[in-house]
Amino acid sequence: MIRLCSTFIKTVWATRAGRVSLLVVVGCVLLAVFGPLLAPYDPTMRNYDQAGKLLRLAGPSWDHWMGTTLLGRDIFSQMMWGARPALLVGGITALGTVVIGLNVGLIAGYFGGRTDAILMRITDIFLGLPFLPFIIVVLAMTGRSLWTIIFAMTIVMWRSTARVIRAQVLSLREMQFVSAARITGASDFAILYREIAPNVMPVALVSTAFSLAWAIITEASIGFLGFGDPTVVSWGSILYDAYASQAMYRAPWWVVPPGIAIMILVSAVYFVGRAYEEVINPRLRSV
């Protein structure tokens, strides 16, 4: 596992785009960890000017680098807090997605036959679930918290990983090293997790990166639609506040930063995934 991670980092680091993207992702992780400590203001505090008047929709200034919201809250501080839910929700969802998807794909692809048929029917059912509507319904039914968002997203997202992994396993299981392992008397379990699984890990990693990117965007979309965790300041919820207050068109400084932050983080994740994918799949490489 550690060796896989170090080859992953080395591979991505080898290209310029990969290096830059990896640094951006690390930067965002640091922001998620330390951002709330470094934020100059409490993100939910109302700010007043010297005369004691509420700073409503104040433009960017020395005191408030990204201006203030309609309720006089400091947008820069909100941005510093917003990285945490984005990466927390995205990260755990991507992890859950790959754990479920990897196992379903491995088992379906290796055992084939009836096991495969049943698992693939289940995958089909999840493939038919409309993504955002399903999450909205689950949130409406169970209450809005970061954990329900993670739960709802994971339930729908593992389907794509499972299909990709299964396709890989189907070709791997015919290979000689698998028959060799079988001749030596290795159990199905051992063949599956010691011989085949390490060989699908690269594909699983790429798939994790894409799930992470997708989960971050979805978390923001849910926040924007007003179904996010009401107790958490996230980049999506900042945009929801801006939209719901109907003041966003008077205050571009309120609308622009969260979107740019999401865009930078997600595209960095995409580029990291793709830099790695190009190495494991040379057909995609640009000359």
């Binding site: 966003m248 622009v256 979107g259 999401i262 865009m263 595209s267 995409y270």
Partner: peptide
């Protein structure tokens, strides 16, 4: 391998990474 290719891929990836609702907000703005 051309510059156009690299440029288009960069723009497409960045666009794809932006939340659709945010792009819409900017367009309306």
């Amino acid at each position: 391998g051309s510059r156009t290719e690299a440029g288009v891929i960069l723009v497409a990836t960045i666009l794809q990474s932006a939340p659709l609702f945010w792009l819409s907000m900017l367009a309306i703005l």
